[in-house]
Structures are given as C-alpha cells and as structure tokens.
Design a binder for these strands. Structure first.
Lengths: 137, 137
DNA sequence: TCCTAAATAATAATTATTCTTATTTATATC
DNA sequence: GATATAAATAAGAATAATTATTATTTAGGA
C-alpha cells in the first residue's frame, strides 16, 4: 500500500494522470510473483472489466521508464514484471511458480577488479539464479 | 573447421542426416558474433538460395538440444545463437556489434557458499555483462 | 539402385507486443 | 462547479518473431 501511494506521487510528478486503470494495474502488481502482461490484465479486468491489454502494456512501459517496475525475461518469450526494489539487486527466481527471492549481494562487486583489465566498457550486467523455491521443490 | 567436423559427428551419432542446408548453417555459425536466425538465414541463402527460414529455426533447435550452440536473448526480443564453448562460461556482450568476449571465471563459484544457506534448489544461473567492445567504444 | 523415414520449402498460423484512430476522461483553469 | 484540452483509453488492426501444417524432396541404409 505504501508502495502504491509512492507510485501515485511519482506518476503525478511526471505529469501522468491517475486513472482507475492505472490504479488497478498498481494493485495487480503488488505481490512477489513476476507476472506477465496477460496475467496482470486478467487480474485487472476482474475488477475493471473493460480495460484493454494494450492499456496494460502502455502503462507497464510508463512504470518501467519511471523505474517503478522491472522487466525480466525467463526462458519463454514473455516479459514479466514486478515492483523494482529500491536498491540494485538480483534474484533467485523459481522456475515453477515464478516467485523470486532477492539476493543481498551483487556479483559485480565481487569481480570488478577481475574485468577492469579487459578493454571492454561495461554499461550493465545481468545475474539471475534459477531453481525451485521452498514451496515448489 | 574442426568445430564443424565435430558437429557433423554429433549429428550423425544422434541419427540426424547431413543435409547441405545443415552444413551451410554450421558454416554460417562460425564467427564470434551472436547472430539472429534471420542473420544466419541471410548468410545461408547467399550460398544456397532456396533455404527457408523455417529450416534455420528447426535446425537451430536441434543444434541447441545437442548442445552444439547456445541461445541468448538481449534487450530486443530476438534470440541470438553461437557455438557453445566446451566449458561452462559467461560473456561480455557488446551491445553495439553483438560480439562477445568469454570470461575466464564463473561468479557462481565465488558465491556458492553465500546462497547455500537459503532454502532454494538452484538448477541454473545466468550471468552476462553488457557494454562496448574495444572496437565500438 | 531403390526404399523409407527424415528433412525440406512454402505457406499458414500463432503469440506477444505495438500501432492507429475515434472516443472518453482527468485535471487545470476559470 | 462548469468547461476546455491534452492525455488516456478501447477496440481492433498491424507487426515481428517463431512455430505448425502439408505436400514434396532427399540422405543414407538395405
């Protein structure tokens, strides 16, 4: 709930309007699971039947640009979304239920000096661990 | 060239036929760049004009199942393919030209004990560094 | 050389996502 | 509170990557 109010402020400050569709999407995004646009759409239309999938996508992009949510691609070709955590971090993602556990460290910190001697200008990195969470294993 | 002969043996042993299309695809796959199915298709049809894109995809899947090639997804929604290296390893991928530099270490080795105490059964992991290679920066 | 299962080309279908357009609405201003 | 307007929306069409279908061709063993 705290998160959602935060988001509303961020949206307002960025000049976006607070529409019922956006509020429903923010509600749907709460929860640990990384959800696809379609899953989020289903949740949203259970409360707000006429919201189009296009609106979900459009707003997911906006929320992403504002760093409110984060996108990840697993093995299948769908994108999945979740509230960003405030800090930079990585996850262990359950390949069965899709839930994720945040890691309390970043491997880049550990290996920085190992790659500094290579002539490659690093701009970003990606680290994810896959497996089964305690419920699914 | 060594690699290609290897692949032919692997394909034969697995009961696959050695077709000119497959040979052309293997030729096209040599080179450091991670290439999309479409890029590979273009190379193939420059020598073998009637090969269909479908054939490229079908054979990429086969080569992947045999661990001959590896698939990666960058930011865009296309898959990219490259010969697997024999050992398990990770890459620094250039976001401009798509070339990749192999890392000589795996971060999982460094952090194993950090995650063993979490109740999560690890089956796989993904680690990639993005940036600009020496030619592109 | 011939037979047969596997592979192929061509094309249609599918899936996730994005675009177009006409309509509706949140909000700033009166 | 009414209203003007730019932004947001719904509906449906379009796109892009990939996969499925089917009739035809071919690699490789008998």
């Amino acid at each position: 709930m705290k998160k959602q109010n935060n988001c509303i402020d961020i949206l307002k400050k960025a000049g976006y309007k607070i529409t019922p569709q956006r509020l429903e999407l923010l509600k749907a995004l709460s929860g640990e699971k990384m959800q696809t646009a379609e899953e989020l759409h289903k949740i949203v239309i259970s409360n707000q039947p006429n919201v189009s999938l296009d609106t979900i996508y459009r707003n997911l992009h906006i929320l992403q640009q504002l760093n409110i949510i984060t996108e990840t691609k697993l093995g299948d070709s769908k994108s999945r979304f979740k509230f960003s955590s405030n800090e930079h971090n990585h996850h262990m993602v359950c390949i069965k239920c899709g839930c994720s556990v945040e890691l309390d460290f970043c491997p880049m910190e550990l290996i920085k000096d190992k790659i500094n001697n290579k002539k490659f200008k690093v701009t970003d990195h990606n680290f994810e661990i896959f497996g089964y969470c305690s419920n699914c294993s």
